[in-house]
Amino acid sequence: MKHWALASGAALAVSAVSLSAALAVPAQAAPAQAAPVQAAPAQAAPSRTAPAPLRGKGIYLGYGSGVRLTAESGRTLWTDRSRSGQFAVSPDGGKVAWIDARGRVHVSALTGTGRSDKVIATGAAYVGPCMTPAWSPDSKRVAFALAGDGTRTTVAAAGAGGGGLRRLGTTSGPCHLTWSADGRTLAGYAGTTEGVHLLDTASRTSRRVPGVKLVNHVASLSPDGRRVVVNTLSPRDDAGDGSWPAAFTPSVYDTRTGKKIAIPVAGRLLDARYLKDGRLVVRVAGRSANTLVVLGPAGERLQTLAEKPRNRRLGLLQITG
């Protein structure tokens, strides 16, 4: 059964009502200690220096009359009532890239005191919420799908300050693009939701990830592009319109073999994503506050942090520290 996530002019389908539905059922127990690991969620090389502990800082997402981005403190950072949904926050948490109805790519500062806005490129696809731009791991470049026809979409990147426009290649998976920390790979899902595709920015070639059938969200790539975090669908599921989800059940796949990798965290999982150093952060539902569980390269539990209760029903869009 085919789904189609790219409805022209689609409004944001993830309303406050659907957000509440996604997060309405509280967890019955606090996250348990990790079970013995069956397989490593990542293939990151061991670091000679231990990474700094995560502090739980992030950018949160809420829907209502448009989109509202907030800091973990609850302070509003950015609002958008255009309802296009085509936006993404930089890894450093300082900027948001967004696409307007004229296909212009903007970069705005997340200051909370009004927009410091710059148009960095034109000709972007303005189709529906799933065609979000993607930030490079150093927060210096923005990748985006170019407008056009056909089953394969050209992806380009421009500097966050403007200039340096370069085509990166074509892919059949332009939805919810995410960039690996080594800068080599972009991953996205097909507009029909049929599969995840990887775009190699060096060779400018793309391929489909084996083993992954229907998805409507690509959340993250491991630093080397060997693991991908997605939201999978069954043929009976509603694909939605591709808006940023407030919560999803994460699945991790090996992008070469298509093997599904177990996430050794108990509880109701709401999100998962890789950090630049290869650690996997898993968001777990809680009764009064959600929890972030940080896993090491071998799946070992490194850290557990409680989020602020005020953010329990919001989506976690970006982890910044």
Rank of each mutant, 00 (worst) to 15 (best):
M1T: 11
W4F: 14
A16M: 01
L19Q: 10
V25I: 12
P26N: 05
A32W: 07
P41F: 05
S47D: 07
S47N: 10
A50Q: 14
G58W: 04
G58T: 09
Y60P: 01
Y63W: 11
V67H: 03
R68H: 07
L77S: 07
L77D: 01
S82G: 14
R83M: 07
S84Q: 04
F87M: 08
F87E: 01
P91W: 05
K95N: 01
W98E: 04
R104I: 11
R104N: 11
V105T: 01
T113D: 05
A121I: 02
T122C: 03
A124I: 09
C130N: 05
T132N: 10
T132L: 08
P133W: 00
W135A: 05
S136M: 03
S139E: 08
L146R: 15
G150A: 15
G150K: 15
T153P: 01
V155K: 02
A158W: 04
A158I: 10
G159M: 11
A160G: 13
A160C: 11
L165C: 00
L165K: 15
T171H: 12
T171P: 14
G173H: 05
H176K: 12
G183R: 09
T185K: 02
G188H: 02
T193G: 04
T193L: 08
L199Q: 08
A202E: 12
S206C: 09
V209W: 11
G211Q: 01
V215S: 13
R226H: 12
T232E: 12
S234A: 13
R236N: 09
D237N: 14
G240Y: 10
G242K: 09
V252L: 15
R256E: 13
K260H: 02
I261E: 03
V265K: 07
L269E: 12
L270F: 03
K276I: 01
R279F: 08
G286E: 04
R287L: 07
S288D: 14
L292A: 11
L292Y: 14
V294M: 05
A306L: 14
N311P: 13
R312F: 04
G315L: 05
G315K: 00
G315F: 07
